[in-house]
Design a binder for these strands. Structure first.
Lengths: 125, 125
DNA sequence: AAAACATTCAACCAAATGGTTGACTCCGGA
DNA sequence: TCCGGAGTCAACCATTTGGTTGAATGTTTT
């Protein structure tokens, strides 16, 4: 199961993996409003700068952020498109989940009905 | 960074992690239309049953599927809610990405405008 | 030119991941 | 009651992950 490049599946692998760490999601949150330098990004977290650098590399390889070197700083900002792709994947299955949710709701309603029938059987009079 | 339970962040960790493997996404696809047994799920993939069992455990811990034991079979079906949660997370940031996309589009338009101005300066007459 | 800063790289470590195989449990049918 | 199928569990293995530290590479500032 070697992860080769460019296929949609492989891209989704890296995107979802990048999103699976709360520190990385938090970083994403931090940079989505405005671009920040690596040290500025690292500041709130009590991990080493190198660790943050690694997180950024993961996010970058997933295409979720982009870096731009200006002077001695590295400015990081969000990149929208891959996230869209992930969202599209989720959305595709939404109809199924909605069906399930509807079914669940139906089930709960039924149970409620049965319940209230048991506790106060006003239906039966 | 111990992963403790029940917090939204931890739940998102497990959901996104579950989605980060293409085999698991594929399994999810397989069971979202109709429930299936474990062996039926395993059939298309050339990995051991035990491996599939592990994948199912990951999906189950993320709350993405549910199992129901009927007789000697284990029926697996999708569970909608956690997926919704992930989608909500993505949707929250959508506005930012859209802003970025809009900005990008704007930038490209501007560049186009400048370009056409350079090649045929009709504005300046 | 040297000092100070921003960031990455390399080596290392512990824990988790995805896979295997073989033994084990549980259930239904002969 | 015993056999075979459905699944899980346990032990193991290689690879990846997320973290560390310390040295290395640029870039500004003095």
């Amino acid at each position: 199961m070697v992860k080769r490049f460019r296929t949609e599946e492989a891209r989704l692998d890296t995107v979802f993996h990048a999103l699976s760490d709360s520190t990385r999601r938090s970083i994403l949150r931090d940079v989505c409003a405005e671009e920040k330098t690596v040290t500025a990004i690292a500041e709130p977290y009590n991990v080493s700068l190198a660790a943050v650098s690694k997180h950024l590399k993961v996010l970058e390889r997933a295409g979720l952020v982009r870096r731009e070197k200006r002077g001695s700083f590295q400015y990081v900002r969000t990149n929208a498109m891959p996230m869209k792709e992930a969202e599209r994947w989720l959305a595709y299955y939404e109809k199924f989940w909605n069906q399930r949710l509807d079914a669940l709701e139906q089930l709960l309603d039924d149970e409620d009905a049965q319940q209230s029938q048991k506790s106060s059987p006003k239906q039966s009079l």
